[in-house]
């Protein structure tokens, strides 16, 4: 179902920031992953219960580029400014992959502003026994198959020779490289996750080939009182692939 997103543009600490908004209710903010393939229509069930805010990270979509944003903490600070601009004090936060890493970092510092936290196949932890796939090593043609168990869930495949698509992908990878060319995790995050003091749900696709589901054990052990829901068959793009995962998140946040 296509979501009737309203696109708003704000200037946040000097940086153009695009926010997609839909639905009414309590605020639920979604922080997207390192790529934008697949789109955001999966969020339709959320818009029935919440006012969904979907900001495009700096370096993605209609948001501007800031070469100075080189750490996850830069994004945490950016989102504190955005929350001020939107006059949002307390909210529900869902973060996917890279956005999950941002959300986890945010929660270690600002749990009091969160009602519920959902981390979907988050990046950020370094788990030696179950390492994440280094997406910088993936060839363009390897990326989509690594993301999803059911490729059709990501929509029609983009034309690999389409210059607009090539440039957009390059821009997204550039943003990602600024944050994590050397490592797409924070070796210190595990020391700080005990500070997440908000009801937290982890959501994972059982066939995730980017962040293996086995990583979930470390996360749930580090975030006290957290729970895990897994879905199958689903890969890293579990939200696109499994509508029941999206509904489960809505239920967790509502409860």
């Amino acid at each position: 179902m296509a979501v009737p997103w309203q696109s708003i543009e704000l200037t946040v600490n000097g940086l153009k920031t695009q926010v997609l908004r839909a639905g009414t209710g309590e605020p639920l903010m979604f922080w997207h992953g390192g790529g934008t393939v697949g789109g955001w229509d999966f969020a339709a069930p959320w818009t029935e219960r919440f006012q969904v805010y979907l900001p495009l990270h700096p370096g993605y979509g209609g948001s501007g580029d800031d070469p100075g944003m080189t750490t996850i903490q830069d994004y945490v600070m950016h989102y504190l400014d955005l929350l001020d601009a939107l006059s949002i004090e307390r909210f529900n936060l869902v973060g996917l992959s890279l956005g999950g890493w941002m959300a986890a970092s945010f929660a270690t510092q600002h749990s009091s502003r969160l009602k519920k936290l959902v981390l979907v196949a988050p990046a950020g932890l370094w788990i030696k026994e179950h390492p994440s796939t280094d997406i910088f090593r993936l060839k363009p043609e390897e990326l989509a198959p690594a993301l999803a168990e059911n490729l059709a869930a990501l929509g029609p495949p983009p034309d690999p020779h389409d210059v607009d698509f090539i440039v957009q992908s390059y821009r997204e990878m550039t943003t990602l490289a600024r944050i994590g060319w050397q490592r797409l995790y924070d070796p210190k995050l595990s020391k700080h996750l005990h500070r997440v003091r908000v009801p937290t749900l982890f959501v994972w696709g059982k066939q995730d080939r980017i962040a293996p589901v086995a990583q979930a054990d470390s996360w749930t052990a580090l975030v006290r009182g957290s729970t895990l829901r897994t879905f199958s068959p689903a890969g890293h793009a579990v939200l696109n692939e499994r509508p029941e995962a999206v509904r489960a998140i809505a239920e967790f946040v509502t409860a």
Binding site: Q168, Y170, R171, M173, R178
Partner: peptide, 9 residues
């Protein structure tokens, strides 16, 4: 990634 600008790419 980032070696050149998206415009140069």
């Amino acid at each position: 990634p980032g070696y050149i600008s998206p415009e140069q790419l």
